[in-house]
Computed example of a mutant assay.
Amino acid sequence: MAPSDQPATPSRTRRRRDPDARKREVIEAAERVIAARGLEGMTHRAVAEEGGIPVASTTYHFATRDDLIQLAFERSVDDFAAYLDALDHEQPLTTLTDLVDQLTDAVVTACTTHRARSVLQYELFLAALRRPHLRPIANRDIALGRTRLEQMLPPNRAAAVSALMAGLILHGMVGTTPPDRDHVHAALADACHLGAASDASTGN
């Protein structure tokens, strides 16, 4: 065979590796490290060990820890947007009861079955407290949730319910016991004025 027809050697294969795939491996490893150890435990070496990749690859694609944090935050918000889009298609809102039920499920699952993902999201969201360049990403995150709530609620109430949900999830994750579904549902029903809306619709 001519030299160009020979199978690529392992070293040649590595050199031809898709740089986007490697970058994705780095950021996914960083997300796992943040979820497990927090931002303070996220170093280039820790990411390399988690992903089974050379440290040089992490520093090549992300010169600083803040570069990693920013992209992880952007991905987190993109995931949230995709989740809301899917929810709109699969469970469109038609009543306040639907809304309260969905929000209650979201709070409970965020603190239980989806806890690891929620920890990552909150670690990244709170990173904006000390990193002003992350605040536009945080603003987008907040706006996404409020926009969906505004399908059923006035803007001011949507903002209040969004803040309540964030607090309920945070309390549920840092507390010693998971949130009680009935208590969460009652709090969200009050915030959404579900009882008042029901009374009005029945003429009471």
Rank of each mutant, 00 (worst) to 15 (best):
118 S>R: 03
160 A>W: 01
193 H>V: 03
146 R>F: 03
149 L>N: 05
85 D>P: 02
132 P>G: 01
111 C>N: 07
137 I>V: 15
23 K>F: 03
197 A>I: 04
91 Q>P: 09
5 D>F: 12
160 A>P: 06
147 T>C: 08
44 H>D: 06
57 S>N: 05
170 L>T: 12
41 G>F: 05
56 A>L: 03
4 S>I: 14
78 D>Y: 00
186 A>G: 04
105 D>T: 13
40 E>P: 00
124 L>E: 00
122 Y>S: 08
140 R>C: 06
111 C>W: 06
145 G>Y: 07
17 R>T: 13
185 H>M: 00
130 R>H: 14
73 F>M: 05
184 V>F: 06
199 D>H: 15
162 S>H: 13
24 R>S: 13
160 A>K: 13
4 S>G: 00
7 P>F: 04
13 T>M: 15
77 V>Y: 01
138 A>I: 00
103 L>V: 01
25 E>V: 11
107 V>F: 09
11 S>M: 15
12 R>D: 15
204 N>E: 10
64 T>H: 12
186 A>P: 04
156 N>Q: 12
176 T>K: 10
36 A>W: 02
69 I>C: 01
75 R>F: 06
168 L>D: 03
116 A>I: 05
47 V>H: 03
195 G>M: 12
90 E>R: 14
148 R>V: 05
90 E>I: 12
32 R>W: 05
133 H>C: 05
80 F>T: 13
197 A>V: 07
76 S>H: 04
102 Q>H: 08
160 A>V: 09
113 T>V: 14
68 L>D: 03
129 L>Q: 14
48 A>H: 04
80 F>E: 07
152 M>L: 14
53 I>V: 12
120 L>H: 05
116 A>R: 15
8 A>I: 12
45 R>E: 15
34 I>K: 01
48 A>R: 04
184 V>Q: 04
99 L>H: 01
100 V>D: 00
114 H>P: 03
60 Y>P: 02
190 D>Q: 11
189 A>T: 07
152 M>H: 10
175 G>Q: 00
95 T>L: 04
180 D>H: 06
14 R>W: 12
129 L>N: 14
151 Q>F: 01
133 H>D: 14
105 D>R: 12
61 H>R: 05
35 A>W: 02
136 P>C: 01
2 A>V: 11
17 R>V: 05
190 D>S: 11
189 A>Y: 01
99 L>R: 04
15 R>P: 02
111 C>D: 04
7 P>L: 06
105 D>I: 11
74 E>I: 08
